[in-house]
Amino acid sequence: MTQPAPASPLFWRFNPEVYRLIGIKCKDCGHISYPRTKICHECGSLNLEEYKLPKKGTVHTYCVNWTPPPTFEPPITPVIIDLEGGGRYQGLMTETSTPEDVKVGSKVEMVLRKVTTDRGLNVYGYKFRLVEEE
């Protein structure tokens, strides 16, 4: 209902971003924008370069959603991740035994997982799982 279909132009268009994590970094202000853009969202500069997002980061904030959209099994744990070296990624946690395992500052990494199903087809994308402190 609220989710784009797996075969939609949206997924085709954003393939490099969704699966290869291609974004941009502003050479003037350092802001990392994602998906790719021609104008820096932060400062308006056109002086940009392609930037591949790292897969590791820490939890900036999160919540535990007990009332997710119909195709999800509650609870789901949406997170905002501070990526290593700057930039943020918004996604869902996976492979947590209980939502209480997730904290502000928890170390995480991206893994490719099924995000949801739409009209019988699987939708894939990156989710985050907790990693052990080194």
């Binding site: 784009p4 949206l10 954003f14 969704v18 919540c63 949406p78 995000v115 994308g125 990156y126």
Partner: peptide
């Protein structure tokens, strides 16, 4: 037109809860 995977599972409550 925003990132297709990112907004999945989100709405007002989850955004403000974060």
């Amino acid at each position: 037109g925003s990132h297709p995977a990112w907004m999945i599972g989100h709405g007002g409550p989850s955004i403000q809860a974060m």
